[in-house]
């Protein structure tokens, strides 16, 4: 019963997706890109951290969805910064959003 309900909601969500706007067009959304395997390994080595220690982004996040990021990927975010001009930020893609 619970499964049936979950499936129903899922279908509705995908139906709504078609109407969704391209969020990357918006000035408040910086450029997101999925990092390759090697790049990812280099990054983790450079900062001496594990994936889990990176900031997170939900796989359901509109910006992550748009580039097709899956749980387990690391996303590189090219932010425009008021103080530094350009900065690079990294987020680890997680399946479910935390703290909700």
């Amino acid at each position: 019963m619970v499964f049936g309900m979950a499936a129903k909601t899922k279908v509705k969500e995908t139906a709504d997706e078609d109407k969704e706007i391209r969020v990357s067009e918006h000035s408040m959304v910086p450029k997101h890109e999925i990092m390759g395997k090697e790049e990812k390994a280099d990054l983790l080595k450079k900062f001496n951290v594990s994936e889990q220690q990176l900031p997170k982004i939900s796989a359901n996040d509109p910006a992550a969805k748009e580039i097709g990021a899956k749980a387990g990927d690391v996303v590189r975010i090219m932010r425009k910064s008021q103080t530094a001009g350009k900065t690079v930020y990294y987020r680890y893609v997680v399946g479910v959003s935390h703290g909700e």
Partner: peptide, 17 residues
Amino acid sequence: EVEKVLGIEAARNAIIR
């Protein structure tokens, strides 16, 4: 609302703004 529609990075920018 910004978080829901445009994602977490946009929400961060919204907080700052």
